[in-house]
């Protein structure tokens, strides 16, 4: 900053308001600087030590305790969550075993029912098979009888056609014996 030109020239300032040598070494000003420095430092010290530093220390301590509280709370919540997870896993396992038990039971029941149905069906089938066999045998017997009769008649006709006297009784006996084979 330029010294105002109306300033009285002293041993540190020339007639044009410029410094002579280093202003830092001008003894005339030192008492002034020291006095105001002491005043300033005392004011700063009082402001800092009485108000500012305790206030900031308090704010920092508050923040630290808040963080600690939140950390404890979160720890608590975490343990609660873990407990809930354990309960959930337990319930899930219970449900699984119950489900598999029910599944086995219903499987066994169904097997039993299936077996009963199979047995019933088998019985019905065997009855039907018996009936069928009987009717087949009947049909076969009827067929055999019809064949025998046709054979006897045919034999009689052949014998007659050959010009011999057809003895019904003999021919019948001969055919029957042949059919029995």
């Amino acid at each position: 900053m330029a010294a105002s030109t109306d300033q009285v020239a002293s041993k540190c300032i020339d007639g044009y308001g410029s410094a002579i040598g280093m202003p830092q070494l001008c003894g005339d000003w030192m008492a002034n600087q020291i006095f105001w420095l002491v005043v300033t430092l005392v004011i700063i010290f009082l402001i800092l030590s009485r108000i500012a530093l305790p206030r900031i220390a308090e704010v920092l301590a508050d923040r630290q305790s808040t963080i600690t509280n939140y950390l404890t709370a979160s720890e608590e919540l975490k343990s609660k969550a873990e407990e809930a997870e354990r309960a959930y896993t337990q319930a899930l396992n219970d449900a699984r075993s119950e489900a598999s038990r029910l599944l086995d039971a219903s499987k066994a029941e169904m097997k039993k029912e299936l077996q009963a149905a199979i047995n019933k069906a088998d019985a019905e089938i065997s009855v039907k098979v018996g009936e069928s066999e009987k009717s087949i045998a009947e049909i076969r017997n009827n067929a055999m009888a019809s064949i025998e009769k046709v054979a006897k008649d045919t034999a009689k006709e052949i014998v007659v056609a050959l010009g011999a006297k057809a003895d019904a009784k003999t021919i019948n006996a001969a055919v029957s014996s042949k059919m029995k084979g």
């Binding site: 900053m1 105002s4 202003p23 005339d28 000003w29 002034n32 005043v39």
Partner: peptide, 30 residues
Amino acid sequence: HPMDQFIVQPLFGSGPIHWYTVTNVTLWMG
């Protein structure tokens, strides 16, 4: 005049600088 910025001068009026004079030192420390 690189050193002129370091000159101590009274804020009000002119005259000799006593230990209690309000100077630019006072201003900038304030």
